[in-house]
Simulated scan of single mutants.
Amino acid sequence: MKRMLTSSAAVVAGLAVVLTSAACGDAAGAKGGGKEKVTLMLNFYPYGDHVPYYFGKKKGIFDRHGIDLKIVPGKGSNAVAQAVAAGKADFGVVDTAAVLTSVDAGVKVKSIGSFFQTSPSAVQFFNGSGIAKPQDLKGRTVALTSGDPYADVLPAFLKANGVPAGEVKTVNVQPAAKIAAVISGKADALVGFISDQGPTITEKTGKPTGYLLFSDWGVKTLGAGLVASDRALAKDSKLAASLWKATSESFAAAVKEPDAAVASMEGASPSLPAQKVLAEQWKRASRLLHTQRTGSAAPGVNDEADWNDTIKLFAGLGVLKSARPAATYWKPVGR
Rank of each mutant, 00 (worst) to 15 (best):
A85E: 09
L317N: 02
L69D: 02
K59C: 00
S322Y: 02
V255P: 09
V103Q: 00
E280N: 11
T205P: 09
F62H: 06
P164C: 04
A297H: 14
V153P: 10
G25W: 04
D104S: 08
V107G: 05
F62T: 01
D152T: 12
K2G: 08
G225R: 04
L69I: 09
P273C: 04
A81I: 03
S7R: 14
T101Q: 01
Q281V: 08
G25Q: 13
A260N: 15
I183Q: 13
A98P: 03
A297C: 10
G318S: 06
V227G: 00
V18T: 15
G48Q: 07
G113S: 02
V72R: 04
K88E: 14
T118Y: 06
E304N: 03
P149C: 06
A105D: 10
T96D: 02
E280H: 03
L15Q: 14
R231Y: 08
S229T: 00
V163R: 12
D259R: 15
I311T: 07
D306K: 12
P120E: 07
G198N: 09
I61K: 06
S129C: 05
A156T: 06
D236G: 07
K37C: 00
D236I: 09
K110F: 06
G29H: 10
A23C: 08
R231P: 03
G60N: 04
G33N: 14
Y329E: 06
Q292M: 07
V94M: 00
G33E: 15
V171W: 07
D230F: 11
D104H: 03
A279D: 08
I183S: 04
I131D: 03
K245M: 10
Y329T: 05
Y329M: 02
T221F: 05
A13L: 08
A23D: 13
Y54N: 05
W330R: 01
W330V: 04
K245W: 07
A187M: 12
V18A: 13
G206H: 12
G192P: 02
L144R: 12
